[in-house]
Amino acid sequence: MRVAIAGAGAVGRSIAGELLENGHEVLLIDKAPTAISVERVPQAEWLLADACEITSLDEAALQRCNVVIAATGDDKVNLVVSLLAKTEYAVPRVVARVNNPKNEWLFNEAWGVDVAVSTPRLMSALVEEAVSVGDLVRLLRFSHGDANLVELTLPPEAALVGTRVGDVAWPEDTSLVTIIRGTRVLTPTNDDILEAGDELLFVAAQAREEQLEQLLSVQRQDAAGQV
């Protein structure tokens, strides 16, 4: 897979290193001569150019890329790069870094963004995920379909503990993709039994998150006990 990364700072170089280790082709683009540090990622291709300019992206042969990552420290630049990659070069997958959480609403399909990664939001989500049991935590937002990757750790008192996955009436536009149980990562089947402490990862439409949380919550059991 060929990947172009706009922004050769610490974030861009780190991403490049990981991708190269996994056997992918990587092109790093940056307009600042001081950012061109070939010796730091010698296996990558490097291009000194402004990724917001069509002529630069032509030189980068962006149409040959499977993925473009807009990883600069400037949200305006990341949006422009994303839009050009998608509309001018039909890049199949565009991933954009969000530096300021207030700008996150802009990073959507209209700007060519397939996946927006907000470092502040991700860090806060990971903190919440580590300490929260019974609360839905949003880990990642996908632009297409207005869907999110969300996580909930099933508390012991939850009504669904002991229930078969196939017997649960999950909300529409919601998919249980993984169950993390201790050190195991399970691909859910209808016959799997939900256990207390299971970390459940869903891809869910944002409009369904509240319904999903209510389904998995302790309050659901409390209400059932009163009936």
Rank of each mutant, 00 (worst) to 15 (best):
E53C: 09
Q206F: 15
L136T: 12
L194I: 08
D173K: 12
L48Y: 01
E195H: 09
E157F: 04
E21N: 11
E25L: 08
E209P: 07
A49T: 01
A51F: 15
R208Y: 04
A8Y: 02
A147N: 11
A116S: 00
V95H: 12
V203W: 15
L79S: 02
R93C: 01
T34K: 13
R93H: 01
P171K: 06
N99F: 03
S124Q: 08
E199I: 12
D74S: 13
A196F: 13
Q219Y: 14
G112N: 03
D191K: 03
L152R: 12
E88N: 11
V133Q: 05
A6S: 14
A204H: 05
N108A: 08
S143L: 01
A147Q: 11
E59F: 04
L139W: 15
V26D: 03
V203C: 09
E21D: 10
V68A: 09
T87W: 15
E209A: 00
R13L: 01
L84Y: 14
W170V: 11
V67F: 02
P171M: 02
A85G: 10
V38Y: 07
G145W: 12
V137M: 02
I69F: 02
S118T: 02
A125C: 10
K31F: 10
T34L: 08
V117A: 09
L139Y: 15
Q226C: 06
A196R: 14
